[in-house]
Structure formats: structure tokens, C-alpha cells
Nucleic acid binder design. Structure first.
Lengths: 124, 124
DNA sequence: TTATATGCAAATGATTTGCGTAGTC
DNA sequence: GACTACGCAAATCATTTGCATATAA
């Protein structure tokens, strides 16, 4: 889960301290926190939303097999929004760059189950 | 909807010709088509998946207000996956660049409802 | 007549919401 | 007592699936 937990990963964590919290409360508080800019709700692909306590813009990589998300510490594409502005009629306010691939663990599984075979059994 | 329809936009379209199709069939066929590489299932943010008949890699912009998606015809970041590889331990297979903003229509609404006010009432 | 595709409805998974109540000022 | 946050359960939304039947090879 790195440090990009989903709502129910957080629910499980919080539960260990407060066994009576409800999932609804977790969602509600994540909402409040992200509306107040204390955390970020990540706009990535995948089925579950993930949350990030790191507020500064940065990029992510997502494992197409298990859904894990990690940071990718490369420099920001600082001018790319201007490039986009000149090519489309939207009022552009931001961008998201997401890399896709296999995390170290899933990569290992792939190699065990089908050595010398580059094709992945995509699941997501 | 541009040309990046969601499953149920397609369902509505298909329905006009085949009034008895079911939404399940639409989903099933979108699945088959994307597994066979005839269409692409876009890995963007937002709650509903969108589909694209354009197979070549390209980038998108998504309206944070109404969800509309359009192409952004800027050049591909051809080396950026290498940059990412040197900064993380994933086996990287691709990337997605998504711009966020307001589409022309929603932008107009914003200006009408709150002129001279840059803050948007995000809804998504 | 065998395989495949479909309709339909129920199931699933993620997230949201209504409502009544416990805790706080 | 009024407010707020919460637990709980039901509701909603997007998507998937099981199953019985229609369709095609």
C-alpha cells in the first residue's frame, strides 16, 4: 500500500485503534480533509480512489497487477500545461502523469509463473 | 461526449438501433473489443471508464465539472518512461498523461454564475 | 446439436447518504 | 438545549456475473 492508501485500507488501520469506527466516517473525514487541502485525493486510474498526505505535486506509478501506487520522483513537467493550452480549448488547471507497470513483488510472481515470457496476464 | 464515450453512453446509442440490447452485453462486448485491441479502455481518473477507438497513444484532457474527455494533440513524451525507470523499481510498461480543466461549455457556465471569480465549485 | 452470444436480473464493489443518537460546548 | 460528528444501515452508481434461452455454424 506504500503511502497511498485506499479508503478501506485506512479503515482497517483506524479500526485497530478505534474498533467502532465505521467506513462511512472514514469516507466522510477523507472528504473533509481533502476539501480543506490537508490531504490529496489522487486522480488516478484503477477502481479505488487513493489518498496521499504529500501535498506537493508529484507523479505516481501504479501496478497494473495489484494496484499498488508509489511516487516517481522525477521533475515536474512545468511547461506542459502551456503546450496543452495551445492545443485545446479547455481552461486547463492541472495535469496528472501516471506510470503503469509491475511492482517488484508482482514482477517476481510473473517471473516465477511464466519465466522468459514478457506478456503479463493483466488483471486490474 | 466527444468521442470518448462511457459504457452507458454507448448503450444509449446502440439502443437506438437495437432497442433490446442490454447494458451487460455492451459491457461484455467492450471487454472483448479492448482485449482484442480493437478499442482502448482509457485509464483515466473520474468515476466511469471511457472508451476510445483511436488506438495510437495520445493524451487527454478531462473536464472536472462534467467529465467530458477530449484529445490533446501534443507530442508524446517519448523518453519519460526511461526517466521513471531510473527512479523506481517497477517494471514500467506505459504511462498516462491527463490534463484537467474546464471544457468550453462548463467554462462558460462558470463565468455566468460567478464572473471574475476563479474558484470553481468542483463537482466531478 | 454444439458452441457462442444475449437478455435479464441479481450480485458485487466502491462510495455516499439519511437518520437517530452520543458526546461536547 | 444546540451543534457536530458518528455508527449503522440502506441507497446509489458503475460494473460484473449466473443462468436460461435464442442464434448461428
Amino acid at each position: 500500500m506504500g503511502s497511498h492508501p485506499t479508503a478501506d485500507e485506512l479503515y482497517e488501520r483506524v479500526r485497530r485503534r478505534l474498533p467502532r469506527v465505521s467506513l462511512g466516517t472514514v469516507y466522510r473525514n477523507l472528504d473533509v480533509l481533502s476539501e480543506h487541502g490537508k490531504i490529496r485525493r489522487l486522480e488516478l486510474g484503477g477502481t479505488q480512489k487513493r489518498f496521499d498526505s504529500r501535498l506537493a505535486d508529484h507523479y505516481h506509478v501504479r501496478c497494473t497487477h495489484c494496484g499498488r501506487v508509489d511516487d516517481v520522483p522525477i521533475g515536474l513537467l512545468s511547461n506542459i500545461e502551456d503546450d496543452a493550452r495551445s492545443e485545446c480549448s479547455y481552461h486547463i488547471t492541472g495535469h496528472t502523469l501516471e506510470f503503469l507497470g509491475l511492482c517488484p513483488e508482482c514482477r517476481r510472481e510473473e517471473m516465477v509463473s511464466s519465466p522468459r515470457n514478457g506478456v503479463s496476464t493483466e488483471s486490474e
